[in-house]
Design a protein around this nucleic acid. Structure first.
Lengths: 227, 227
DNA sequence: TTTGTCCAACCTTAACAAAACCTTAAAAAA
DNA sequence: TTTTTTAAGGTTTTGTTAAGGTTGGACAAA
């Protein structure tokens, strides 16, 4: 996680570095031009930007950045607390605006919130077992590049198995989980679905990992932890 | 663009509604439980959340929401300005924290910054999916040079799908988002609109990207986001 | 210890049933 | 008029059941 601090006050810059160093890899720029140059590399996850700096002020840096389509989240950190300053800051493309003096913790929290969102939206909800990946968001399964078509309950079954890999699940557990307690179909459907799932995975030789334990149930085994 | 205001002070709630109504469609909740219920529908672009409310306070609402994987951006709006309160707010998952009393403009700016990031290109008014472009300002759709005629709700549906591409949207979500909670028509209209939309996109072979997931809902897929 | 038999548990398939969804068109509303 | 909603029939997918085949292990006899 990379943070760029653009701040001409070296004492403050160091102090910020100190408070944030546990969460980020840090680069520092001590004037606007240097800051802009570094930010343009587009390798940072978030930027802390001071406004009042010699030569090129923070507004100009940010405006230039956005003009160049660098969308890195920027938090403005400044002593200017007038509403007009804030308006200007947001208008040129800031994501947050924090007034000096501030609490260390608040800066950290705001950085964290910002990063959580920009990183979090990228990472999808993926559940994996070896090279088999389930995208929980759009209910698609894939092995390597290839997409495997699984219908609703087959997907649910596989998800349940992966979530409990290397532990035996009884047919009753599986049934209650996927079909629901009150369902009045018999638990033999589980066998049918296990069969269907195996058939769909056979092509990729992943059916072998679904092991059945007579009288006990099923287990998805990665073949390492042989009980 | 949908905004949910969770605030028990009706005067303040109305005042917020007044300042934001040009930018958003607004729903109001006047206590925590109602707010949680509405927020769970997951159809809002941003939520304004008060902390001190009877029965269920803002922290609890937000914590519960995040627990349920609802990641809608939340801005906390409260009179509590202690650093510990802010810490608590961010820890439970807030994206921003604004202390009362506040400037109207600042709230607007922060809302805008938040939405700009999560929805993207809020300002440009153009929403794109491959070569299909929606001009949000005048509600026209086009592919390449050619203009596609879409009536109101068809356009809304397409907009909602694009904004959530590669994630499955249930018919209920779509319905609540486009027709509104209090609408008393049935959710089967969603099927009709999906059908109409597909028909209108068929000419350009874009109907293929609207995938239906039986028992789950619909998804606009660009066919890349597997794994 | 090995071999053979038997049975319960499990697998697989396919047919049928039942949801879920699509499409169209007509009625209603704006 | 144009757009929205409702309703109805048709289509497709998925869920369920049942039947016959297969397998593994218990157990007894060699």
């Amino acid at each position: 996680m990379n943070l760029l601090i653009i701040e001409d006050d070296k004492v403050l810059s160091e102090s910020i570095k100190e408070t944030t160093k546990e969460m980020f890899q840090i680069e520092q720029a001590f004037d606007g031009e240097e800051g802009l140059y570094l930010a343009e590399q587009n390798i940072f996850d978030v930027i802390i930007l001071d406004i009042m700096m010699p030569h090129m002020n923070g507004y100009e840096v940010l405006e230039e950045l956005r003009k160049k389509n660098i969308t890195t989240p920027v938090i403005i950190l400044t002593a200017k607390d007038g509403i007009d300053d804030k308006i200007k800051g947001f208008k040129v493309g800031a994501d947050d605006y924090l007034v000096k003096p501030f609490h260390r913790e608040e800066l950290l929290l705001r950085l964290e919130a910002m990063v959580r969102r920009s990183v979090g939206s990228f990472k999808e909800n993926i559940l994996s077992f070896k090279d088999l990946h389930l995208n929980l968001k759009n209910k698609t399964a894939s092995i390597g590049e290839e997409v495997i078509k699984l219908n609703g309950k087959q997907f649910d079954l596989l998800e349940y198995l992966i979530n409990n890999k290397n532990t035996i699940l009884t047919k009753e557990q599986i049934f209650d989980r996927i079909w629901g307690f009150e369902s009045d179909t018999s638990t033999t459907v589980v066998e049918v679905y296990a069969s269907n799932l195996r058939k769909n995975l056979k092509k990729y030789n992943y059916d072998q990992f679904i092991k059945t334990f007579r009288g006990l149930g099923y287990m998805l085994s990665d073949g390492e932890g042989n009980v």
